[in-house]
Amino acid sequence: MTPPDPGPRKPGTPDPGSRKPGTPDSRALVMARVRRALADVPRAETPDAVPVERTYHRVHGDRTAAGTVDLLAEHLADYRAVVHRAGPASLPDLIARLLADRGATSVAVPPGLPASWLSAVPESVRRVPDTAELTPHDLDAVSSVVTGCAVAIAETGTVVLDAAPDQGRRRITLVPDHHVCVIRVPDQVVGSVPEALERLDPARPLTWISGPSATSDIELDRVEGVHGPRTLEVILVAPEPETAGQN
């Protein structure tokens, strides 16, 4: 995933973003300091010659695919995400019910959200498409947002968004106070952090979400609900229809 290398910038080439401070001289100065500081490193040593042993586990424990999904559900709930399970057929009704229970009057909709997902949501709930024109103030007036996800991590209870069409811009899952996130299980679920990174594209903006927003800033005690959505509902959708309903 290495972006094209534009080649080293020659000293004397103006720094693209700044005018006066942070001149190329500062770059040369800092780089010269770094090289002087590393006088003890043999010239012939390459970065790869410094050993890094990756003897840690790729994934912790041995689980079936279903076991991994169960662990995800358990860990999501541990950090106060509300977990639901559904099949493809029962998903629209579940989403409609979650929005209704919340009293949602509007819902932000990513451009690539499968149309069926909101098919049971009454017309009275205003659809707010995720467009570039939308301002943060507009979004602040939106009740809920429904998205898919890129990958979910069982060991940590994490959902990762990568701004793909079924997830939309980063801000639509940030400003509304209620986020409904749909995970296709078991396909989108991995066991561990290393397995998740393998699936992700660093060029895309990533948002890793583990439960609703929280803080430990008052006496190092965790309190849920600060600036991000205070309610995170996760729906695990399995390919074979299961009994829908709350976990």
């Binding site: 991590i153 209870g157 903006p205 990533l206 948002t207 583990s210 965790r222």
Partner: peptide, 13 residues
Amino acid sequence: TAERMNPYTSTWT
């Protein structure tokens, strides 16, 4: 914070 994962991690390129 002694959590399995912190609530939010953002990456941008």
